[in-house]
């Protein structure tokens, strides 16, 4: 068998010298390191620019015009047409300091309000949608497992309510409360939807617990925040799409 090592040795007869090669290798390594540092810094700057741009875009979308106006200007004092949001005022003490609640554009319509929630880490924690319906005395609170059955509601301060929780799909977790005032049939629905598609039970948790959603839905101030003529009974495409629909009749045109 051929002795390849010895045969190939002949090939190296014409090998060029290697003077200064090691220093050249080290110079090249320094150059590579500097290039890598520049690339990391450039990537960091680019990321920061993207974060700033996205932050600006989000702020422009979610902060209401009254809050984004002239610094120091009081919308009420300046005669702004936007009335104070009483639903938001009722929500904020319920969620406490852990979440920031901001009106989400479009933030309101006839019979509904919607809010974006942001955690202390700056991440979105999902949506809170509050809507109002006129419901009859014999409102049948839906039972998820049985379309023909009515749920037995709980009671608080003259309000009948039922809570619904959806947490089996971590990518779409929802807490919903339907609360009907016995006095006038005004029915408040609070829909708290966690951030969608996080793949994590914790990250996708709804911004309101069932108890918090109940507190909001049964608060007299929230029902009072809607004008008497506001309601989502009709097939209004802008009203929130509920996870559990309120079985109310559509309004009859006069």
């Amino acid at each position: 068998m051929i002795e390849l090592g010895r045969v190939l040795d002949d090939v190296f007869d014409g090998e060029p010298g290697a003077d200064g090669a090691v220093d050249a290798v080290y110079r090249r390594a320094d150059e590579m390191r500097r290039r890598k540092i520049r690339a990391v810094i450039s990537a960091g700057l680019a990321s920061a620019a993207v974060v700033v741009a996205v932050g600006y875009g989000v702020a422009t979308l979610v902060i209401p015009r009254s809050a984004a106006g002239t610094p120091g200007a009081d919308p009420a004092a300046s005669g702004s047409a936007e009335p104070p949001d009483q639903v938001l005022a009722a929500l904020r003490p319920v969620v406490g300091d852990d979440l920031m609640v901001l009106p989400r554009h479009p933030s309101r319509g006839a019979g509904w309000r919607q809010y974006l929630t942001v955690g202390t880490d700056g991440r979105s924690r999902g949506l809170i949608e509050v809507s109002v319906y006129d419901a009859p005395d014999d409102l049948c609170f839906p039972v998820l497992a049985d379309a023909g059955a009515c749920a037995r509601p709980e009671h608080r301060d003259g309000v009948d309510f039922v809570r619904y929780a959806f947490d089996s799909d971590v990518d779409w977790q929802v807490n919903e409360v339907i609360a009907r005032r016995r006095a006038d049939g005004r029915t408040i629905v609070v829909l708290a939807t966690g951030e969608r598609g996080t793949g994590s039970a914790a990250a996708g948790r709804p911004p309101l617990t069932g108890a918090q959603a109940t507190e909001v839905a049964t608060a007299g101030t929230v029902a009072a925040a809607f004008d008497g003529g506001e309601q989502c009974n009709g097939p209004d495409p802008v009203c929130p799409v509920l996870r559990v629909r309120v079985p109310v009749p559509a309004p009859v045109d006069d």
Binding site: A24, V25, R28, A29, E31, R33, K36
Partner: peptide, 9 residues
């Protein structure tokens, strides 16, 4: 040279 420079970094 290139291989050894990468080895160093």
């Amino acid at each position: 040279r290139d291989t050894l420079a990468r080895l160093i970094t």
